[in-house]
Design a protein around this nucleic acid. Structure first.
Lengths: 338, 338
DNA sequence: CTGAAAGCGCTTACAG
DNA sequence: CTGAAAGCGCTTACAG
């Protein structure tokens, strides 16, 4: 092993040992141009002998490609922190990391911190997957400024970005139908107050279903930043003002656990007196007692789809504005049984 | 905005617009050398006017630093896949990503796939956090070959790598004491068959405690690859051969759920006839019915510690061989109550 | 405090 | 099929 001591070997070292030029080593590695079998063997031997590993920074600078994609969300910490919303982000990130491998790419995790500009300052990427952006999402504008290809998971507001449809409407419909079938007659909706498409679509669906069923709507917007406590207070007030409530639909899981706590404190039995359902089937839904009826969003598949689309976009291919995600499926649990 | 059309602006463009040299722009950005206030202002104006964003690949190539750390684990998919073990990895990754930001670094997620060499091929990093490596861990040898600084979470086998102590012994002790206090007299240990330090330490602790309590040990090794099903079969056989078993300690959560299923199928009540405890307090433990008594490992803190140590190591500072992690705390749930 | 220039390690036209 | 050379966009000695 005549490794040049101290210094990491470069193409130059490999070329010298194999008796060829740098360019030929590069071509043997990338396959960009054909290299004679015998030459290639000499090169491979030299690579093995030296323990050569390409300098990715140099390659990236030269090609202008980073072979990296990023995953990010701008959900505020009150909802996204801890194991709850984070679970949502993480399920997607893990799946995207595995799929990125098929495209010779790595996945960087952009942490959900207060300042998106700071979070992005030190990450280079060929493209980004943005999870459920809000209107005027800070990540989206930063990425647009930099001209970075984006695929949205959820549904983008206004922007013309390509997206994977997570079926907000169908999800709301699934949960509301379930409540109505179980005999709920006074269903309250506890919804995020921010301008997120998921909230708007869910609310429209709710209004329509209530109107069809001849049930007076009861919508309680809660600021996302207030998280579980906000939903707790909202539910406590609701139970006093509308004592007849027999079901609560809280799509944000942090809101659902807040509602559950308020119900417990008010002595209302779940599901006996009040049924509760939420959207994301994560730690919060499963850990609650009784555990919460929710929806399997098939996030692994969603992430796989989004990754493939993003890679096509980066490669300059045409991709559809909207891509159908897997259909959500109801997961019935104790909070709405019986 | 006299942005050079099509091309992304570079230091050169900024320098020209500000009427200074490239070097001065660089110094103004990095703070490596002092720059006169008035000059700095002109530079900042130029940066804003052009929308200049540094080319990280060029910077990395020049400095030799990637400002990236990676998180990885070599746990086989049968145990690590899905929401279970993945949760463990993800809790650490999320926390490490946030802490990395304090060191101007990004975090890449190395996906747990069959071939570690493939998983690492396209990621450049200054250092790595390796989670609970096994003996002759493939990631560890790859990283060593490349001379990449490593901090281990858990406990390394043999290697002299710095590590954050997750208190395997104390964790086992906590759970076994709990079972003994609740009156368990015939405690079986279902443990991973691979050469992982956590398994060895747990087993030693178990042997010692059983010996002290005058209880005949009953250890059932299950290959990690067999996952939940392996533990199911092992438990089924165990219940036939040793009918008097009144407690099961299954540190791997996938094994614990396998044991729970076997107990249900055998008609044994949990916790009435058999108590069950596991280690990682993740989705599996919480979702099980009854939910499983487990241990809060304070993974966010552990990850924060590991990230700080790794950054020091990268910076060339001396770091201790072993760093005390937060103490585990018992989370008592239905599977061992009453 | 600032400038001019070298060079990090690759890949890719350009010749042959 | 192969080589010699240019150049990607930074940072950092080296001068002044």
């Amino acid at each position: 092993m005549d490794k040049p001591a101290g210094r990491r070997p470069t193409v130059k070292d490999v070329a010298r040992l194999a008796g060829v030029s740098q360019g030929t080593v590069s071509n043997a590695l990338s396959g960009a141009r054909a290299v004679e079998t015998e030459t290639r063997q000499r090169i491979n031997q030299a690579i093995a002998a030296l323990g050569y590993v390409p300098n990715l920074a140099a390659r990236r600078m030269r090609t202008g490609r980073t072979n990296t994609i990023a995953v990010m969300t701008s959900m505020p910490a009150a909802v996204s922190a801890g194991s709850s919303r984070l679970g949502f982000l993480m399920e997607i990130a893990a799946s995207a990391a595995i799929h990125a491998l098929d495209y010779n790419s790595a996945l960087v995790l952009v942490p959900p911190v207060a300042d998106p500009a700071v979070a992005l300052r030190h990450v280079a990427m060929d493209g980004a997957i943005v999870i459920e952006p809000q209107q005027d999402d800070p990540f989206l504008s930063l990425l647009e400024t930099r001209g970075i290809p984006v695929v949205v998971i959820g549904q983008p507001a206004g922007t013309g970005l390509p997206w994977v449809d997570m079926h907000y409407e169908r999800t709301a419909d699934l949960l509301l139908s379930h409540l109505l079938e179980r005999g709920a007659r006074r269903i309250a909706l506890i919804i995020g107050a921010s301008s997120r498409v998921s909230h708007a679509v869910t609310r429209e669906c709710y209004d329509r279903r209530m109107s069809l069923a001849g049930i007076p709507p009861c919508v309680i917007p809660v600021p996302e930043q207030e998280g579980e406590d906000g939903a707790y207070r909202a539910t406590r007030d609701l139970l006093q003002q509308v004592p007849g409530i027999d079901a609560i639909f809280a799509p944000v899981d942090a809101f659902a656990t807040g509602a559950m706590r308020a119900l417990r404190d008010a002595g209302r039995a779940v599901p006996g007196e009040v049924r509760v359902v939420t959207r994301y089937d994560g730690l919060r839904a499963r850990e609650e007692r009784p555990s919460l009826t929710a929806v399997d969003l098939h996030l692994e598949q969603v992430a796989g789809l989004a990754t493939g689309l993003l890679m096509d976009l980066i490669a300059g291919k045409e991709i559809p504005a909207r891509t159908e995600g897997p259909l959500p499926s109801l997961v019935i649990r104790g909070s709405s049984q019986g």
